[in-house]
Computed example of a mutant assay.
Amino acid sequence: MTVLSVNVNKIAVLRNSRGGNEPDVVRAALTCIDAGCGGITVHPRPDLRHIRPDDVRALAATIRGRVEYNIEGNPFASARGAYPGLIELAREVRPTQVTLVPDSDSQITSDHGFDLRNDIPRLKPLVAELRQLGCRVSIFVDAGATEFDEAVAIGVQRVEIYTGPYAEAFAEGRVHEQLALCAETARRALHAGLAVNAGHDLSQANLGTFKAAIPGLAEVSIGHALIGEALYDGLTATVRNYLQILR
């Protein structure tokens, strides 16, 4: 079954808007785990606008051995203030998976994948270091990406397909082209020996269609829609709804 990894960034956004410790990111993650999710995802950024390094550490200590732990981020973003950098955080907490994402400081959210043709040389030493730490390495790619053989050659084990354009097309009733592009990208990645993850703007409305089109989908990372839907139905019920879709 495809693993549901719940991104808890939005819990931290709500907490940070008021200050203090509520809502509690760790408690939210444990609620998702108790509901049956197979992973927790965080995406710390240098500006600390949601998940902070202390959250990354607290979650690692709490969920270790219970579910997979996926840390996303830009490996080229410099350390500053309380943010030690993505690779340093990985050294500290040894997550199950590190997903490398080329987001800039100015982006509200991730909106594109790596250009593998040009970025492979820069990524190579970072992937090697993460593998030495015992982390599975995934890289964020656009639907339509190629050069998967080159990614395998530097030690990448998974790709995460950026599903924002698919979700937008689904909402507008013109899903066929984007869905076919995602499916072909997944096919090429699997053929190269990579496992396939997916994430961004996936929701209860569009996840079933996507899952049916991507045989062998290993993991979906879902945060924004899931937390939004949980405001109406509750976190436990919402996680279980997603798990039912993935079944």
Rank of each mutant, 00 (worst) to 15 (best):
I40C: 07
A60Q: 02
P95L: 03
T62P: 00
E229Q: 12
A12G: 01
R52F: 06
P53Y: 10
S17C: 00
Q132D: 15
G65Y: 10
E160D: 08
L243Q: 03
Y166G: 00
G20H: 04
V159F: 10
A218D: 15
Y69L: 08
H43M: 02
R187H: 13
D142H: 11
S221Q: 14
L202S: 09
V98C: 08
Q132I: 06
R15D: 02
D54C: 04
G155P: 13
P23F: 04
H50L: 06
A82F: 07
R117F: 12
E184Q: 11
V101G: 00
F148R: 13
H176Q: 14
A77V: 03
F140N: 06
Q204K: 14
D24Y: 01
R18H: 09
T238V: 09
P102E: 07
Q157P: 09
F170P: 05
N206G: 00
F76M: 11
T62I: 03
R158N: 15
Y232P: 08
L116V: 12
P46S: 08
I51Y: 01
L126C: 05
H200A: 02
A192R: 04
V175M: 00
E92G: 07
D34L: 15
R45A: 04
L246Y: 13
G20Y: 05
N206L: 00
K10S: 08
I33Q: 10
V56Y: 05
A12I: 01
